[in-house]
Write a protein that binds this DNA or RNA. Structure first.
Lengths: 187, 187
DNA sequence: TATAATAACTAATGTCATTAGTTTTGTAAA
DNA sequence: TTTACAAAACTAATGACATTAGTTATTATA
């Protein structure tokens, strides 16, 4: 072996993200990851705690990045326009980083404190966008659930080729969100 | 060993469903399944082709049953009332058969012809409910995508404890669907 | 009763994740 | 510059899996 490369946790995580995005989260194994990094599998344990830990890191990073994408997308926008842009950004994220998105979505342990915190960050972001609607706290929380259900459901179905008709997908998403928002206006 | 028990494919599938519902689809292994059936792992190969095949069977059965549940739920109902009932039935199914629901939803290979066919059955069921709305074919397909996104997204988030506020979940789903349906009316 | 099909079995292989214990390497202190 | 320590890599070993091949036993049928 040549000189050691001095991997760190972030490099390992990035390589794992690449693998997950390219081959799917199911195919992400420590063996494959070690091969990609040209080290032996047990050496990974210097940087991660194990496979479950790695998956958790992917989930957390995914949640952070998807929120970041939504924050970026709503700059200069408000109300319906902002919600539409946030929804599109969410789905676009799932398209561009499918493995990371799977990591968010195939998550078993949502009870983990770290993930709870990041998840709460997404919710409070959405609540801030909803502020101008003047909803009660309870109403707003129902809307947040609705919004998350729509975009997650759409992204998830699209990801698994659940939409098989030759129908424009962006248009489907736009209509879904707009129809919902229209319904919200006319209460 | 005593007399052989004469297992068949259906019994094996049922046992697999039980395991998946109780412990989650991730925990469903051939080893665990064989133990439950008091046989050795290789004996399973008399009834299934392998683990991927078993998963596919679970997905197919899940799709069939969830459609059945929706069909049953809309008896005597039409339009908004029918769509609401179908959505509730979908989510209820995910609650009662979480493993089977995971099998539908964690599915990689949606290209499989058998699954394609069952999935198409769900879509045509929804199209029939939408008939009275007098939508164009294209509009109706967008609505079907929207409906599937909403209910799948909701069920999926709920399944992973994605809803952490102490807010009534049935109420959230009802509002989501009703808001969408209201938006559909007021175009 | 004999035979064929089927359901079970044992044995073996290969892929994983994981742990324990060891060697090497880079860096920082003496 | 040398020494010492921490970190990053390694080898070896274990145990859980899925899967295949080949074998035995049981049920049903001819």
């Amino acid at each position: 072996m040549a000189t050691r490369q001095g991997l760190d946790a972030e490099t390992v995580l990035q390589a794992a993200i690449d693998l997950a995005d390219q081959q799917g989260i199911e195919q992400l194994s420590l063996a494959a990851l070690a091969t990609k990094l040209t080290i032996k599998t047990p050496s990974l344990y210097n940087h991660i705690k194990g496979l479950p830990d790695l998956r958790k890191q992917l989930s957390k990073r995914g949640l952070l990045l998807v929120k970041e994408a939504m924050v970026e997308a709503v700059i200069g926008k408000a109300e319906d326009e902002a919600l539409l842009a946030a929804g599109m950004a969410y789905v676009d994220f799932a398209r561009k980083q499918p493995g990371l998105y799977e990591a968010i979505s195939a998550l078993p342990d949502y009870e983990d404190p770290e993930l709870k915190e990041v998840g709460a960050g997404v919710v409070s972001f959405l609540l801030r966008i909803l502020a101008p609607y003047g909803l009660s706290e309870e109403d707003a929380l129902h809307v947040v659930r609705g919004f998350r259900s729509m975009v997650h459901g759409f992204a998830s179905l699209e990801h698994r080729n659940g939409f098989r008709m030759g129908l424009d997908r962006d248009e489907s998403l736009r209509r879904l969100l707009q129809t919902y928002l229209r319904g919200l206006r006319v209460r």
